[in-house]
Amino acid sequence: MSTTAPAGTGPATEKIAVITGAGRGLGRSTAEHLLARGTRVIGTYRSDEAAARSLVEAHGADRVEVLRLDTARTAEYPAFVDAVRAAAARFGRDRVDHLVNNAGTALHASFAETTEEQFDEVLAVHLRAPYFLTQAMLPVLADGGRVLNVSSGLAHFVVPGSSAYAVMKAGVEVMSRYQAVELGERRIRVNTVVPGAIATDFSGGMVRDDPGVNAAVAASIPLGRVGRPEDVGGAVALLLDDAFGWANGATVELTGGQRL
Rank of each mutant, 00 (worst) to 15 (best):
Asp70Trp: 11
Ser203Thr: 10
Phe80Tyr: 07
His33Ile: 03
Asp97His: 15
Val159Met: 02
His126Leu: 15
Ala7Tyr: 07
Asn149Phe: 01
Gly144Ala: 07
Leu99Gln: 09
Gly161Tyr: 03
Leu67Asn: 01
Phe91Val: 05
Tyr165Met: 06
Asp210His: 14
Gly23Ala: 05
Thr71Gly: 01
Ala52Pro: 00
Val190Ile: 13
Ser162Ile: 01
Gly204Leu: 03
Ser29Gly: 04
Gln135Ser: 11
Ala75Pro: 03
Asn214Thr: 10
Val181Gln: 15
Ala50Met: 05
Val194Ile: 15
Thr39His: 06
Ser162Lys: 06
Val181Ala: 14
Arg63Trp: 02
Val140Leu: 09
Pro211Gly: 08
Leu240Trp: 06
Gly144Arg: 08
Ala72Phe: 06
Pro11Lys: 15
Val96Ala: 13
Ala215Tyr: 02
Met175Tyr: 12
Val84Leu: 05
Ala166His: 11
Ser203Cys: 08
Arg46Gln: 10
Glu173Asp: 01
Phe119Asp: 07
Ser54His: 12
Leu69Thr: 08
Leu107Glu: 07
Leu35Ile: 02
Val232Phe: 11
Glu57Val: 05
Ala79Cys: 02
Leu123Asn: 01
Thr74Pro: 02
Asn248Gln: 11
Ala83Val: 01
Val167Arg: 15
Gly8His: 15
Phe119Trp: 15
Phe157Cys: 02
Val66Gly: 02
Arg68Met: 00
Ser162His: 12
Ala129Glu: 08
Ala88Cys: 04
Leu148His: 11
Asp82Tyr: 01
Pro160Asn: 07
Phe157Met: 11
Met137Pro: 09
Val174Trp: 13
Ala109Phe: 02
Ala83His: 02
Asn149Ile: 11
Glu117Leu: 15
Met168Thr: 15
Asp201Asn: 13
Ala142Lys: 11
